[in-house]
């Protein structure tokens, strides 16, 4: 069913890409020649020559701090407007395809926001939970905004992440690790097509990080979502079926400007 709905005409696509990605109908994101730059002395430019993400894929954006991982994540999450895009399409699992660049250009911000709420979950490096809402309400916030029933879904995901006993606490009463689990639950409780995670375990100790990452990974499989995760530590991600997307980085020696670029789409 999803396959049928995701299907779209391929005639406007360069044939070379079509051969390389034989399951084009199953794309989630399709970016081509997308750039975002911040001008100035310490300017920064990110270029994405091409990035195609397929449904159910796990993508690891790998690179050190400042290489543009967060910029790419924000572009994909549709909270950051690209300067230019040859193509920037989003194909949600159960919904209309969205030409993201077109929506930005026509300032259809409500459409972008709605798409975000419906199809995307975002997990930040440090919680980003609402301190004034209970864990239960934090996890259920997107469902509430979408008018979906809240309680069962929240309890079910909380059990999977082993935080069900914290549901009525405030985030301030939790440890950093527990907060990250709540953040993951919040990003996934509304069953989005895509979950975007920005170094979700970077602020945790290795043991905690490993455990949470493993839970996160399991949940991603179970919920059948596409996961896009930024990390500076490739580690065992390869073993977990992640596809690695790397960033190239070059600094203008005279002006200090940084130019980052997505390198390959190797599926090692």
């Amino acid at each position: 069913m999803a396959l049928m709905r995701g299907a779209r005409p391929t005639r406007d696509r360069p044939s070379v890409k079509a051969t390389r990605f034989d399951v084009t109908a199953n794309e989630v994101f399709h970016l081509q020649d997308v750039t975002k730059s911040w001008p100035g002395e310490q300017g920064f430019t990110l270029t994405v020559p091409q990035l195609v993400i397929h449904r159910g894929e796990k993508i690891a954006l790998v690179g050190f701090s400042g290489c543009g991982k967060s910029t790419l994540l924000d572009l994909l999450a549709m909270v950051l407007r690209p300067d230019q895009a040859g193509r920037f399409d989003f194909f949600p699992q159960n919904g209309e395809a969205l030409n993201v660049m077109d929506a930005w250009q026509h300032r259809r911000l409500s459409r972008l926001a709605h798409t975000r709420m419906l199809h995307i979950g975002y997990v930040l490096q440090t919680g980003g939970l609402f301190p004034f809402l209970s864990v239960r309400e934090n996890i259920g916030i997107s469902r509430r905004g979408l008018g979906l029933p809240v309680d069962d879904a929240v309890e079910s995901i909380a059990q999977r992440l082993h935080i069900e006993r914290h549901l009525n606490k405030l985030p301030g009463q939790l440890s950093v690790g527990e907060r990250q689990r709540v953040a993951i639950a919040r990003g996934m409780a509304h069953r989005p097509s895509v979950v975007i995670a920005d170094e979700p375990t970077a602020s945790l100790d290795p043991i905690n990080a490993e455990e949470i990452l493993s839970l996160f990974n399991k949940l991603t499989d179970e919920y059948d979502v596409t996961l896009i995760m930024a990390t500076h530590d490739w580690g065992k991600l390869g073993e977990r079926g992640f596809r690695r997307v790397e960033f190239g980085f070059k600094q203008d020696p005279n002006r200090g400007n940084v130019h980052a670029m997505i390198l390959g789409q190797a599926t090692d």
């Binding site: 909270v79 911000l109 926001a113 975000r116 905004g145």
Partner: peptide
């Protein structure tokens, strides 16, 4: 973060 979650401006 409300905006990130998808609440419109």
């Amino acid at each position: 973060i409300s905006g990130l979650i998808g609440f419109s401006t």
